[in-house]
């Protein structure tokens, strides 16, 4: 007994290599996409939330981490309710904008519109993370987002103000501060994610990427993309007590060039129908280029996060086209 337990302790503390891969393929995903597209069209778009749930279920379900798949539990019904609420919110905003334009207060209308959008962005981020995370699980353990809405709002507006004052330069800090806050509030059961980025470094990568891309007539673009991907991945850790899981990417600029180039060929030569294959091969590529090491024991994670079923934020961020980081 004694011997066995020391053995376990040893293996617990020495760093392990975890595996992450995408097991889906374009053919299967194409079936889902085309069926969804058909249903969405014949229902005049009403099927969209269900279509989205199906697509997310497939993409999560085919993502395998250490021999177990992720699960997406969100349903079309939840997202449909959220969709309606999001439409009402956006409708009120657009309505007051058009109303003010017709009443001949164009400046006031634009001010209301921009303020409204600025308010909706942090609301959408907060809501979509709460929903998406609580609806995601791995080995039955839910993820969760514990960020505070008011804290996120005040950070967002402070940084937005600074961004306006600095003519956009502070925008690099704005996006990294948001990423730091949001990702560091994500939990996986009793384990916590932490993202530590720095606005200055991020700005540096982008300035360098921008100018070198111009100087090299676009060739550097792929190395710029690689550097950003590295910045997003390598600064993310999962912490469980004093144990950690670290992420690192092994992708090269050449890999990114190949990925983008072939994706472009697929899209152009299939007139967009090859979209499903582009998604599948991109995920396969990106996940295979992430190396995960650490000493967290993945068999002792405890369920801690409550479930949350209001998808308004999810749908709102869809409408604002915000995209999702994780």
């Amino acid at each position: 007994m004694e011997l066995v337990s020391t053995d376990e302790n040893l293996s617990e503390n020495s760093p392990k290599l975890y595996s992450l891969s995408f097991k889906g393929n374009g053919n299967e995903y194409f079936g889902i996409v085309i069926v969804n597209f058909l249903l969405t069209i014949i229902t005049l778009g009403l099927y969209y939330p269900w279509a989205k749930a199906r697509q997310l279920q497939y993409l999560y379900g085919t993502t395998e981490f250490n021999n177990s798949r992720f699960e997406f539990h969100g349903t079309g019904k939840e997202m449909f309710k959220g969709f309606i609420k999001a439409i009402i919110l956006v409708g009120i905003l657009l309505g007051s904008y058009i109303g003010l334009i017709l009443l001949n207060h164009p400046i006031f209308a634009i001010l209301i519109y921009l303020t409204g959008i600025a308010l909706l962005i942090p609301l959408a981020i907060h809501g979509s993370y709460r929903y998406r995370m609580s609806r995601t699980s791995w080995r039955g353990i839910r993820f969760g987002y514990r960020g505070d809405r008011n804290e996120l709002m005040s950070k967002f507006f402070r940084d937005l103000l600074l961004t306006l004052i600095t003519f956009g330069i502070y925008g690099a800090w704005l996006s990294i501060h948001l990423r730091n806050y949001v990702l560091s509030n994500i939990r996986f059961g009793n384990a916590t994610f932490k993202y530590q980025g720095n606005g200055g470094e991020y700005l540096g990568i982008n300035v360098k990427g921008y100018f070198l891309t111009i100087l090299t007539l676009g060739i550097y673009f792929f190395w710029w993309k690689r550097e950003l991907f590295e910045y997003y991945i390598n600064n993310l850790v999962l912490i469980d007590d004093n144990k950690k899981i670290k992420l690192r990417t092994t992708a090269t600029g050449g890999d990114f060039f190949q990925l983008y180039f072939i994706n472009l060929l697929i899209i152009v030569f299939t007139l967009g129908i090859g979209y499903a294959w582009v998604v599948a091969r991109s995920l396969q590529f990106l996940l295979s280029k992430i190396e995960i090491t650490g000493n967290v024991d993945l068999e002792v994670i405890i369920q801690t996060e409550e479930s949350f079923n209001d998808a308004t934020g999810e749908d709102l961020s869809d409408m604002l086209d915000l995209g999702f980081v994780i």
Binding site: K23, G24, E28, Q57, Y58, Y60, G61, T62, S68, R69, E71, F72, H73, S137, R139, G140, R142, Q303, S307
Partner: peptide
Amino acid sequence: INITHRDREMMMLSIGQPSCTLE
């Protein structure tokens, strides 16, 4: 029982709330 995922290799089922999972 909810089928949360199915592909050629794997089917995942989820049962009840808080959910149990079968691979």
